[in-house]
Simulated assay, not measured.
Amino acid sequence: MTTESTSAPVGFIGLGNMGAPIARRLLEWPGGLTVCDVRAEVTEPFVAAGARSVTDPAQVATHARIICITVIDDAQVTEVLTGPAGILRTAAPGTVVAVHSTISDRTAQELAARCAEHGVEFVDAPVSGGAPGATQGRLAVMLGGSAAAVDLIRAPFGCFADLIVHAGPVGAGTRMKLARNLLHFISFTAATEGQRLAEAAGISLTALGKVVRHSDAVTGGPGAIMLRDTTAPIEPDDFWFSILGHVRDLGEKDLSLALELGDRLDVDLPLAQLAVARLAEGLGVAHPALDKETP
């Protein structure tokens, strides 16, 4: 680890619900912290804790060589970078700009090209873990950018993240985050479907929630099956064939029982119907492949 990577001054733009707890973890960063937000009052606790506060992104870039951006959307990120008082007006060549906001991967690539014109490195760096993860320093960060830029930001990012993944070139971090959040919100939708079934069956929803959180903490939840390098069908002699075949059998059995219960209680379960139809193929152990192995 180079001296630069452990002492580079850091700037942070956007101290909202997610940005503030991340930035607080950087208050003791040896290179110092400069903060900026359109609401001057939210910077006051940071100043009291020893950070520098400035009024616009261009001023951040005069003090920082690693700049984190946590604002709302693509338009705000673009303004922070390229606007009249944007980072690129003053950023020195070699500055690394990391965007924690979840934006379009195309926007990330377009902004990286703009940054490159100024000798500035752009990294899309969306996070997963929410404000509690940020507060605890346990975020996962998915990085899209050059190896050199990623190496420079690993040390300061270690203040707020305990998992840092270099997903690939610019845009890859965002694409990983979108895939992760697709799973996240489909799971939420599945949770609402499970709640409807439980409610119709006279089951306590809060008790069910306790069981789900408890068992997912033990088993890893949906991430427990995400251990292969490919989604291709699994060959019968592959290590995962019997394991995921067993998962398929259990899943199809339990989904069928849940669907039968839903039919009796007149509860529509469209996600369960999709799941029972697609589970085997999604796991890579579709029925024809398994049936060939059945005596």
Rank of each mutant, 00 (worst) to 15 (best):
T70E: 06
Q195L: 14
A112R: 04
G262A: 04
D74I: 02
V97R: 02
N17I: 14
I69A: 05
A172F: 06
T70A: 10
V267R: 03
A40M: 12
F185A: 08
F241Q: 00
A75F: 11
V38Q: 12
I13R: 03
V77Q: 00
M226F: 12
K177F: 04
M18V: 04
T95G: 01
M176E: 07
Q195T: 11
A172I: 05
E293M: 15
H214P: 07
T6N: 11
G168D: 02
Q136T: 13
L143W: 01
A51M: 05
R52S: 13
L265H: 09
G130H: 05
V120C: 04
E110S: 14
G209H: 04
V123Q: 06
T34E: 03
T70D: 12
T219F: 15
V42I: 05
G19E: 02
A40S: 12
A161K: 02
A64I: 08
Q136I: 14
P169V: 09
L250R: 09
M18N: 00
I153M: 04
A172T: 08
G130R: 03
I13A: 06
A232G: 09
I13G: 00
T102A: 01
Q76H: 15
I22T: 07
P21S: 06
A51D: 09
M226V: 10
L33T: 06
R138T: 15
D238C: 02
A49P: 09
V123F: 03
V77E: 06
G50L: 08
V80K: 00
S101I: 00
V141I: 03
H184Q: 12
I164R: 00
V60D: 02
C159K: 14
D74A: 09
P21Q: 04
G14H: 00
I203V: 12
A289N: 12
R106P: 09
R228S: 07
A172E: 04
V276N: 03
A272W: 08
E4F: 15
A289P: 14
D162F: 09
L257Q: 13
V80R: 04
D151W: 10
A113H: 10
E44T: 10
V10K: 06
R114S: 14
P9E: 10
V77R: 00
D37K: 08
I67D: 05
A201I: 10
